[in-house]
């Protein structure tokens, strides 16, 4: 059945197509966020290794 014009909301969609997230959608976003967060930590870890001081050239251990 064709919907009447008064059923269309201000942003061009009907109230039934609103931005309310479903349980499945929420779970999907939650898991995706977790994966991205883990990946981000891994990248940060690599940078941390590069930040370690570089061993110097031209020095010696003293005997004392």
């Amino acid at each position: 059945m064709k919907k009447s014009e008064c059923d269309v909301g201000a942003y061009g969609h009907t109230p039934s197509q609103s931005s309310r997230i479903t349980r499945r959608g929420f779970l999907g976003f939650f898991l995706l966020g977790g994966v991205i967060s883990l990946f981000g930590k891994k990248v940060k870890g690599v940078v941390g290794i590069e930040d370690e001081p570089r061993k110097a050239m031209f020095w010696r251990k003293t005997d004392a």
């Binding site: 001081p53 110097a56 031209f58 020095w59 010696r60 251990k61 003293t62 004392a64």
Partner: peptide, 30 residues
């Protein structure tokens, strides 16, 4: 065993104890 090192880069040749930083402020004995 001694952890003291001597830097041989510049003529100052700082002798550095463990965790001491050289006169140049940018070289550390760890």
């Amino acid at each position: 065993m001694s952890k003291t090192v001597q830097c041989e880069l510049c003529p100052t040749e700082c002798v550095l104890e463990d965790y001491q930083i050289g006169g140049c402020k940018v070289r550390i004995n760890k």
